[in-house]
Simulated scan of single mutants.
Amino acid sequence: MRRIALVTLVVGDYDEAIGFYTGALGFRLVEDTPRPDGSRWVVVRAGADGPGTDLLLARARGGSQRARVGDQTGGRVGFFLHTDDFARDHARMLAAGVTFLEEPRHEPYGTVAVFQDLYGNRWDLLQPAG
């Protein structure tokens, strides 16, 4: 079996990113390990243990990486957070201060709304149809 295990998300600060992903989005901190070079290996997970894809929160180093924070996909939705209860998660995220860029809409593929993370990266909150 093969799968994508981690996707790197370049962030401005480890602790503020951990706070947003675990607090506002309800992710779970899986690992936060200091590295000899002063960086940290920070992994968060959206759901329970299982065959999902975790996020590696990597603090930007240097000007070119700092310029990509919040714009890793050129303004497109780059991340897709699936849920089994759109209304529950949408309400919880709104209460936590998450910025949604549109009202929820019903599409043939499911219920969806675009939101942004604390850096401006665009995400879909999506409850797939069926």
Rank of each mutant, 00 (worst) to 15 (best):
G38M: 02
R122H: 13
G74V: 04
P51T: 01
D15H: 11
R66A: 14
H82E: 13
A60L: 03
R59D: 06
L126F: 11
P36D: 14
L56A: 13
L57M: 12
E107K: 13
A5L: 03
L56R: 12
G52C: 00
A96R: 14
G50I: 01
G120H: 05
D13H: 05
V98F: 07
L125K: 08
Y119R: 04
A5Q: 06
R92A: 15
G38S: 01
D71P: 01
T73Q: 09
G75S: 01
T99F: 01
V69H: 03
F79R: 10
V44G: 04
A129I: 02
I18Y: 08
Q127N: 04
N121P: 00
G75A: 00
Y119E: 10
D84I: 09
A87N: 07
D49K: 11
P34F: 10
F80A: 09
G23Y: 02
S39A: 14
R105L: 12
A17N: 06
V98H: 10
Q65R: 06
G70S: 06
P51G: 06
W41H: 10
L6Y: 14
D85W: 04
D84K: 11
R59Y: 05
L118H: 14
D84Y: 06
G110C: 09
I4Y: 09
E102W: 00
N121C: 00
P128F: 04
E31L: 13
A24W: 03
L6W: 12
A60G: 04
D84P: 11
R105C: 07
R2N: 12
F80L: 13
T83L: 00
V114D: 07
A24I: 00
M1V: 08
G110S: 05
R28Y: 09
L56S: 12
L81V: 10
R2P: 07
G47L: 10
T73M: 11
G70F: 02
A48S: 14
P128Q: 06
V11K: 06
L81A: 00
F100S: 11
G26I: 02
F20M: 01
L6H: 12
S64P: 11
G74M: 05
Y14P: 03
A113Q: 08
V42I: 12
V30E: 15
F20K: 00
G120P: 06
A48F: 07
S39Q: 10
G19M: 04
E107L: 15
E16G: 05
A17T: 06
V44K: 03
V10N: 04
S39V: 00
F79S: 06
D49W: 03
V77D: 03
G70T: 04
R105I: 11
R2Q: 13
R59E: 15
H82T: 13
V112G: 01
V44S: 03
N121E: 15
R76Y: 03
P128Y: 07
G19I: 01
G50E: 02
R122T: 03
E102D: 14
Q65K: 05
H90C: 01
D37E: 08
P104R: 12
T33F: 09
H90Y: 15
E16Q: 13
R35Q: 15
G52V: 04
Q65M: 14
E31I: 00
E102K: 07
G63H: 08
G63V: 13
V43Y: 01
P51V: 05
A113P: 09
M93E: 03
A113S: 15
V10M: 08
D37S: 05
G52N: 09
A17D: 11
